[in-house]
Design a protein around this nucleic acid. Structure first.
Lengths: 349, 349
DNA sequence: CTGTTAGCGCCTTCAT
DNA sequence: ATGAAGGCGCTAACAG
């Protein structure tokens, strides 16, 4: 029951001054106000100054909806991510936001929580808002999404992967190779019995690719992977901890565990602590993404540094380039790097 | 040089069908299409079905800008945060987004990177986009911001604190009390020589309040706080690690360190590891916010669980309630809770 | 319950 | 370089 705040929906809206008010105060027409705003070069400096003075005096802010309606450009970009609750996507989104803001665009944020049907729905909302471009996470999406985007005809970029078919503009890195590198590292240390902690692979190409990378490394080394030593779950510590407990309870537990991201790896480490399994003496484990969470563990987590921030920045630069008609590479594969720390060592004798 | 993607800015935009097209196909007027969309109850069921069929067939999505221009409601809410790169605000924002999405609103995200002038600037942008309401982080803002909001006359909520003056709607918790609780815990353990790791307090009321909470606890216990044992810096591990190194290099280093958030605490722990200072034997340390980062350390970090997610949800519910004219408490103080773990113990003998 | 009409605020021709 | 006029797509007010 907030007395002064509980009522008054949008109704209290004070009178907002419009271009007409500015025009009157500056003694010009609304057309000149518009020009002063959008093409200052095409206005007499003196007139320009008068208009600007009037704008300041009235606190005039152009009405975006009217502008968008007329010019067919909203100066908004839609970002569609699984969830910014996950630090990774939050960081990428922040980098994207910074680039957009610097160019005068606003970011409309949508989440789909790993539901590709929801992704189509939120995209329709973004279309409704008239966003000028879209940024998505991942390569795999509902065909209806691409149909919608195609219809809408505006730029979009997929991130966190590079489309091998080159069908959709995309910026990211080779997830498979990243997991391969982590796995290969433990193979080289002498491990032969591997486990896998992974995100649910349904509709998640990052997780799929990372799993494939691990399997490829093992296959290449002539090591058979026992699928009974793989566990899939939601990206949180409690789940991964439970998953690791299952692996440790097996008759022949793995001596090396590949995790498709740092969260799973740290959850796994928690389970090891629960059971007195020593890392790296009894078990080696790797993450992917090289987050603070992993790097601050004891021992510190061996991981793969992925271009979390660069992806966001590159995606922003790409859509802006396309919006202004500047040529720009539609496919960008960014580098990653294995970071070896204390969580990996040769297997126990 | 993406051949098919490099050119074509917005120009490729396919013809988007409008209400007129739907009306023609359904054999009704555009007004009925509008009503079918906004007040389905006021349309003959049979007509409604025909309209819906036409909408589906054409893949019609209402033009948000036109709708906003006419109805003065954009169905967008602006969220202005320091940065979603910081996991805390990302999680709150995600919770907010979920609530808004469920009610048909979209979230426009703006960041100001702890620059209150930038905050005014991005708010102007949001005003330009015609957002229906605003959500801010923190209680302290540029007076021009409030002037702007006042002019605009739409609902807004401040978060992560509750305005003691009851001048601005706000939802959060008592930051001072949270820091007080953490400090008090270590006082009770017998500590007398305290250190502080804090965010830069300029324009950051959360950090200010938390620092005051620590000082209040000490003062109440009759313990003098030596300001030379306080360090202020940006919220990242490298900075806090360096800050802690400075504290440890003092002639009489603290035996208990209060950190205004978990990141500082974990950075502090890293410095202790660097120097072989044992936690909690040689030094006790506390965080605030109870993040995974702190909870997974060895030893686990004693912290204060703050309502990170609830703040976002409550903020969303409040602005929506106000937007639809439903009464709603304008001030909400949410609970927090001290979580004692292994990083705190009595001081060394 | 449905159609007609007018106009939201701005940008963009087209004249001048 | 500037002004006058029309209309972007939709919804609100009013008739019928």
């Amino acid at each position: 029951m907030g007395a002064p705040f509980g009522r008054s929906p949008a109704s209290t809206a004070a009178v907002r001054s419009g271009a007409k008010d500015v025009a009157r105060l500056a003694g010009v027409s609304t057309a000149t106000v518009s020009r002063a705003l959008n093409f200052p070069g095409r206005v007499e400096p003196e007139t320009l100054a008068r208009v600007r003075q009037a704008i300041d005096q009235l606190g005039y802010v152009p009405h975006g909806a009217a502008r968008a309606l007329r010019s067919r450009r909203s100066q908004m970009v839609g970002a569609v991510v699984p969830s910014v609750d996950y630090a990774l996507y939050a960081r990428t989104t922040s980098a994207l936001q910074a680039v957009l803001d610097a160019k005068g665009y606003s970011l409309v944020l949508a989440e789909h929580h790993y539901d590709l049907a929801a992704e189509v729905r939120v995209t329709e909302q973004l279309v409704g808002h008239g966003v000028d471009a879209f940024v998505y996470v991942g390569l795999h999406h509902d065909p209806r999404l691409f149909a919608l985007l195609d219809d809408y005809g505006r730029p979009y970029v997929l991130t966190w992967g590079v489309d091998p078919m080159r069908r959709h503009p995309s910026v990211g890195f080779d997830n498979r190779a990243a997991a391969y590198a982590a796995t290969r590292h433990m193979i080289d240390l002498g491990h032969r019995r591997f486990g896998l902690l992974s995100a649910v692979t349904t509709d998640n190409d990052r997780a799929i690719e990372r799993g494939l990378g691990m399997r490829a490394a093992l296959a290449q080394a002539g090591i058979a992977f026992d699928e009974s030593r793989a566990r899939y779950g939601p990206i949180d510590l409690a789940a991964s901890r439970a998953m690791m407990h299952e692996l440790l309870a097996l008759d022949a537990p793995p001596t090396a565990v590949v995790s498709t991201n740092d969260v799973f790896a740290v959850g796994g480490m928690l389970a090891c602590r629960d059971r007195g399994v020593r890392i790296p003496d009894d078990l080696s484990i790797t993450g992917i993404d090289n987050t603070d969470l992993g790097a601050t563990q004891t021992p510190a987590l061996t991981s793969v540094r992925t271009p979390i921030v660069d992806i966001g920045r590159a995606a922003g630069e790409q859509v802006i380039a396309r919006l202004v008609g500047r040529p720009h590479a539609a496919f960008e594969s960014l580098p990653f790097e294995l970071v070896v720390r204390g969580s990996t060592a040769p297997p126990p004798a």
